[in-house]
Every structure is written in C-alpha cells, then in structure tokens.
Simulated assay, not measured.
Amino acid sequence: MTEHREAAHADQDFAGLKAVFFNCTLKRSPELSHTSGLVELSAGLMRGQGVEVEIIRPIDHPIATGVYPDMTEHGWEQDAWPEIFERVQAADILVIAGPIWLGDNSSVTKQVIERLYAMSGMTNDAGQYIYYGKVGGALVTGNEDGVKHCAMNILYSLQHIGVTIPPAADAGWIGPIGPGPSYLDPGSGGPESDFTNRNTTFMAWNLMHMAKLLRQAGGVPAWGNVPEQWNSGKDLGLDPNPEYR
C-alpha cells in the first residue's frame, strides 16, 4: 500500500509544465472580473503542483480583430496577438475562461478563439498543425443560463484546431437567472459551491495529467495527421479520388 501511494505521488509531479489562462472578461484591469475568481481557483491549484501559470486578460491588449496571424499586414495599426501567441506556443495547457452574455460567450472569448484559429495553419516540429500536443479546457461564469453551451463552443473550437481535450475539461458557475449576484459578490455562494469547486478541481487535474502524458509521449504520434504526408500522396489508409489531390 505504501509503495502504491509513493508511486501515485510521483505521478503528480508536474514541474516543467506551463499553462496559459485567457480571462475573456469585458472589464479592463484593475476593474473586478468575476471570471478571475474561477480562473484563480484553477490556476492556484496548478501552481501548487509546480505548473508555471500565466493569466492573460485580452481586453487589456490591443488585439486586432480578424483571422490572419498579424492583422497589421491587413490594415490594422496595432496587433498584440503575434506577441501573445508566442506565450501560447510555449504553453502545454490552454484554458479559455469568460462570462456569459445573452446566453453565449463574450465577444472577447470569440475574438481569442478567432485569433487562435488564425495560427492553426502553422505546423510544429513534427509537421503537425501547431496546437497538436497541447491540452485545453474552459471556465465559464455568469448569472444567466448558458454554461454548457459556452463550454461546448470553446471546447469544440479548441479540438477543431488540434488541441487535446481531456475528460471533464470544463467548469462553471451561474447565479440565479436574471439580475443578481455574480461569482465574487458577497453572499453569492459562488466560491462555496461544491459542484463548481469539484468540477474546477477535476478539470485542473485532468489538464495536468493529460499534458504530462503528452509530454512524456513526445506529443501525439505524427502519422496520419501530418499535412505534408497527405499532400505528398502517402498511403494513410484512405484512397480518395486522385482528381481532388
């Protein structure tokens, strides 16, 4: 039994992993962001396990709107995204967090997803699309319905561009529907919610476990998912009409 506990403890060494959280609030710093409460809960757990964590509030940066890697090449005077993306590239874990507005993700959440998508044609050292080998999760807050809808959109978007989604990779909190207290408001019950705390904890651990597994494995195996293999006509198990190759 002692050996089993020691082995389990060894498996919980996550030193060397890096996580980036995007807090997609509509509020600029230092204004209170209720989303930050849930972000700090998850980020704090990761920090406690040796993960290097960075939290980015996109609204504080002049990120241009668009789906190209650098929008200054398409008429915008400023675009902070290329520099921010360098931090994304260095991360093993990517979490998108944001509020619910009109039952959907915030405009900033949508913008971040669009800018992540803008880089999705790039490739990693193995020739796979750039987000292969990273893991992703979603955090959602609000006082109206939509947690699962918002998380579904975020997680679908992340996996579509190549991010690996582990089990139970989302968590959220909503107060009473309609005008009412938000997550960090006194008496909201948000920080005390057992359901939210459990899901946030499971999400954080699953993200760390999956990121560590991928790092130990050298990423997702680079066969059958490398664009150059397809373009060069390698036999990947599918024989499409050559007219479309």
Rank of each mutant, 00 (worst) to 15 (best):
M1I: 11
E3A: 15
A8T: 08
H9D: 12
A10D: 13
G16S: 10
G16N: 09
K27W: 09
R28W: 03
P30N: 07
G37P: 02
G37N: 10
L41P: 00
L45S: 03
L45K: 14
V53L: 06
P58Q: 09
D60I: 04
H61M: 13
P62S: 07
V67C: 05
Y68K: 15
P69M: 08
D70H: 08
T72D: 12
E73Q: 15
H74W: 12
E77S: 14
E83N: 09
I84D: 02
R87V: 01
G98P: 05
P99F: 06
D104T: 11
D104G: 05
N105K: 09
Y117F: 12
M119P: 01
T123N: 11
D125W: 08
Y132R: 15
K134C: 06
G136K: 01
V140F: 03
N143M: 04
V147K: 08
C150E: 04
I154R: 01
Y156P: 02
T164L: 05
I165G: 03
A169H: 00
A169Q: 04
W173E: 01
I174W: 00
I174V: 14
P176L: 10
L184M: 14
D185Q: 12
G187D: 07
S188R: 12
S193Q: 13
D194H: 11
D194V: 15
T201M: 11
A204W: 00
W205D: 11
H209P: 00
L214N: 06
R215N: 05
Q229L: 03
Q229W: 05
W230M: 13
S232C: 07
G233L: 07
G233F: 05
L236G: 06
L236K: 11
G237P: 07
G237W: 10
L238C: 11
D239S: 15
E243L: 13
Y244S: 09
Y244H: 12
R245V: 04
